[in-house]
Amino acid sequence: MSKKTKKILKIVAASVAAVLLAVCIGIYALFHNEISTLRSLEKVNDYPLYTMDYQGDYGLDAFLEQGGASNDGELVSFVVKRLLKGLPIEINIPSLGCSTFTATTPDGDYLFGRNFDLDYSPAMLVRTKPDDGYESVSMVNLGFIGYGEEKLPDSLLSSITTLAGPYAPLDGINEKGLSIGVLLIPTEETNQDTDKTDITTTTAIRMILDRCATVEEAVALLEQYDMHSSANSCYHFHIADAQGNSVIVEYIDNEMKLVEPQGAYQAATNFLLTPGDYDFGHGQDRYEILTTELDAKNGVLSEKEAMELLKSASQKPHKTDSGSISSTQWSVVYNNTKRTATISMGRDYEQTFEISLFDEK
């Protein structure tokens, strides 16, 4: 090979290397937040439970400016375009059980307890830090975004879909000590139809965690939007704050109803609590377990006792009407005062994952 040919090849190789470097720099510039987010994914429990710190803007303002979403399909369309750069995904929210309650510790901390009941559900605790909102952590059922026993986010490639996490929260707490959980009501789906911007079940939770410091603010926010429940079902929201306030937000005949606590605590399962002929559904047995213990303690429980109560109200594996095997997938005790969370996965109450969300503010 002549010297001239070698020189030409070196120039070509250098040019190719320069182009590849430029492409890599361009890709990193476009996707560095996504890459950083995926690299933060950590498996902290063998059930499993993962944690993830979401980096960058997940576009909540843009979502609302485009008109929000009146169904799961419209939400998926936005998530695919904004967060997944065109990678297809489905967000499926099936029938789910669940229990929630509020309590106060002997030291005066306000607690929010939550059981999430469904078939096998690997989970992810997502931390978000929006520039124009409150920092929060929220629990995501990875089964809703395509994961399961045969597929888990254990590599960079397989974890890409977890980027949809911010739009699939089911319960959580923010830096102001406001916590929220959603529970199924087996009645007609909610589809409010006015001239307000449309939101769905999980986007309502995302908005409340990002933008609300108190129960009052959360209710005022929900009143500004048309609610469209996911999965052709109906849900109610249990919301509590660091001042000890609590409310259950329900939708009956597409009208929002508020259920205030009647004593030192408030509890919810899977039937409507609005006064009237509405107490149908299921979960009355779990509701009785919660209220009996809370009555006996006048709503005062330590964090350990709160987790024990979640254990008492948890569901053992059983076959549902659809043929699936359902049980309590996770239990969380949120301390709204200290802004902490203690998580049990798969009814393993001997091993819990504890996280201190925020420094005292």
Rank of each mutant, 00 (worst) to 15 (best):
Ala69Thr: 04
His228Thr: 07
Lys338Met: 14
Lys311Phe: 07
Pro106Ser: 13
Glu350Gly: 14
Thr5Cys: 11
Leu41Gln: 12
Ser121Tyr: 09
Tyr147Trp: 07
Leu83Asp: 08
Glu175Arg: 09
Phe78Ser: 04
Arg127Pro: 00
Asp119Val: 09
Thr128Lys: 02
Asn336Asp: 13
Gly113Asn: 09
Leu142Trp: 08
Arg211Leu: 03
Leu309Cys: 06
Gly26Asn: 06
Val332Ser: 08
Val19Ala: 05
Gly113Ile: 08
Thr200Cys: 01
Asp154Val: 15
Ala22Glu: 02
Ser70Leu: 05
Gln55Tyr: 04
Ala14Tyr: 09
Ile145His: 09
Thr292Val: 11
Thr292Met: 11
Asp226Gly: 06
Asp117Leu: 05
Gly263Met: 02
Ile199Glu: 00
Thr5His: 12
Asn45Pro: 07
Leu118Val: 08
Gln315Cys: 13
Ser229His: 09
Asp241Met: 10
Phe78Gly: 04
Ala264Ile: 03
Ser246Asn: 08
Asn336Cys: 09
Ser322Ala: 14
Val333Gln: 08
Ala341Asn: 05
Asn174Cys: 04
Ser95Leu: 13
Met52Glu: 09
Glu350Ile: 10
Asp72Phe: 06
Leu60Thr: 05
Pro166Glu: 01
Leu272Thr: 01
Thr292Asp: 14
Ala103Gln: 04
Arg339Tyr: 03
Glu34Met: 12
Gln243Thr: 12
Ser95Asn: 13
Cys98Trp: 11
Ile35Ser: 12
Leu157Gly: 13
Met307Arg: 07
Thr102Trp: 05
Pro186Cys: 09
Ile11Ser: 14
Ala164Tyr: 00
Gln55Ser: 11
Asn71Val: 06
Leu87Gln: 14
Asp348Thr: 06
Gly133Thr: 07
Pro94His: 06
Leu60Asn: 02
Gly276Asp: 05
Leu184Lys: 01
Tyr110Leu: 08
Ala268Val: 06
Asn191Lys: 12
Gly108His: 12
Pro48His: 11
Arg127Lys: 13
Gly283Thr: 03
Glu360Val: 13
Gln284Asp: 09
Thr292Asn: 13
Leu357Glu: 06
Glu250His: 05
Ile355Cys: 10
Phe31Trp: 10
Val300Lys: 03
Thr102Cys: 07
Asn335Gly: 10
Glu250Val: 07
Ser158Asn: 15
Ala218Tyr: 01
Lys304Pro: 07
Lys43Met: 15
Asp61Phe: 04
Ala204Phe: 00
Leu75Pro: 03
Leu221Cys: 03
Leu156Trp: 14
Gln262Thr: 11
Gly146Arg: 08
Val259Pro: 00
Asn92Gly: 06
His318Leu: 15
Asp117Phe: 01
Leu309Asp: 03
Ala123Asn: 13
Glu288Gln: 15
Glu293Arg: 15
Ile248Lys: 01
Thr214Arg: 03
Leu41Glu: 12
His318Trp: 15
Gly113Ala: 13
Ile343Cys: 03
Asn33His: 13
Asn115Thr: 07
Tyr287Lys: 07
Leu273Gly: 00
Gly73Ser: 13
Ile91Tyr: 01
